[in-house]
Amino acid sequence: MPWLQIKFFTSPEQAAEIEDLLLESGCASVTLLDAADTPVYEPEKGSTPLWQHTIVMGLYEDNVVEQEIVDHVRNHLVLADNQTFPQYKSEILEDKEWERAWMDHFHPIQFGKRLWVCPSWREVPDPTATNLMLDPGLAFGTGTHQTTALCLEWLESLDLTDLDIIDYGCGSGILGIAGLLLGARHMIGVDNDSQALIATRDNARRNHIEDSRVEIYLPDDFPPQQADVVVANILAGPLITLAPVIADCVKPGGLIAMSGLFERHVDSIMLSYAPWIEFSPYATKEGWVRLNGVRRITE
């Protein structure tokens, strides 16, 4: 059965109301998209941030009359004095197996020589490699983004045997779990989103990691402690604000990697961590940066 898809190009202020109006008009599903392809990585706890240019996309059975949908939105959408009715467009989508099409988008990805991240429905390319089984979910981090890839490549390059690792801003837990599969003894995941903590625990179990090897905390509950290796794939702002906290997670002589930033942020972040961290040359991937270094040993 074909489907009618209607997209409204709007602002964050209008998006929620348009979503409600589409559902009222019999929409089978509503999806919010970013018109400028700008991801939101670190929302405030309990918030649902939207993009400056948001697409509200509704999917209808093909027997629905497009003009009736548009008229319903037009007649009920409350516009401020400086707002105009949003632009929209529609198209007919041929029927297909949408779940299968979504699944086909995700493939195993290799990081370094010995680490693969694989969705559960795909065959493992190299059974002799370190294979992290991870499906896309609510928490950020599947290996497809450049910042995650930079951190995974760094972890893969280390000898993590019997080391402890802290994944600060753990999201899906991909970095800490990768560390465990690569030989680390124990991981601690910290995130301000409780959903991320659930995802980290679930993903660890999916990879046959014992619960005793994984600790997860909200930041306010995190008991101060140090690890041999720390990864923090968040954003430049939180990295700077949390500099004393994150730096103090690293044992003297321990290693740290940070990502979620652009080259324009490098100097300010290095300055923020200068009292504790001696940095190596940074790595880049498609404009994104990974900073890594060593915690200074002080007498």
Rank of each mutant, 00 (worst) to 15 (best):
E44T: 12
E44N: 13
E44C: 06
K45T: 14
K45C: 08
K45H: 10
G46I: 07
S47C: 10
S47W: 01
T48H: 13
T48N: 15
P49E: 10
P49T: 07
P49L: 05
L50Y: 13
L50G: 01
L50S: 02
W51R: 06
Q52T: 14
T54W: 01
V56R: 06
M57Q: 15
M57P: 01
G58D: 00
G58W: 00
G58I: 03
L59S: 14
L59Y: 13
Y60G: 02
Y60P: 04
E61I: 06
E61V: 03
E61N: 13
D62M: 08
D62V: 12
D62T: 08
N63S: 12
N63Y: 13
V64R: 10
V65D: 12
V65Q: 11
Q67G: 05
E68G: 15
E68V: 08
I69C: 04
V70T: 05
D71P: 08
D71F: 07
V73K: 03
V73I: 15
V73D: 05
V73S: 11
N75Q: 14
N75E: 11
H76D: 14
H76K: 15
H76P: 14
H76E: 11
L77S: 08
V78Y: 09
L79M: 08
L79C: 11
A80E: 14
A80F: 11
A80T: 09
D81K: 07
D81Y: 09
N82M: 10
Q83A: 08
T84V: 11
T84H: 14
F85A: 04
P86D: 05
P86N: 03
Y88Q: 09
Y88C: 04
Y88A: 09
Y88E: 12
Y88K: 08
K89H: 07
S90V: 09
S90W: 04
E91C: 06
I92E: 12
L93N: 05
L93S: 02
D95I: 02
D95P: 02
D95F: 11
K96Q: 15
E97V: 03
E99I: 11
E99L: 07
M103A: 02
M103I: 00
M103K: 13
M103P: 01
D104Q: 14
D104C: 00
H105Y: 07
H105T: 10
H107I: 08
H107C: 00
H107D: 06
P108I: 05
I109N: 09
Q110S: 12
Q110I: 05
Q110C: 11
F111N: 02
F111M: 07
F111C: 04
L115G: 04
W116I: 04
W116L: 01
W116N: 00
V117D: 05
C118E: 07
C118I: 15
C118Q: 06
C118F: 07
P119W: 03
P119N: 10
S120K: 06
S120L: 05
W121E: 02
W121D: 01
R122A: 04
R122C: 12
R122G: 03
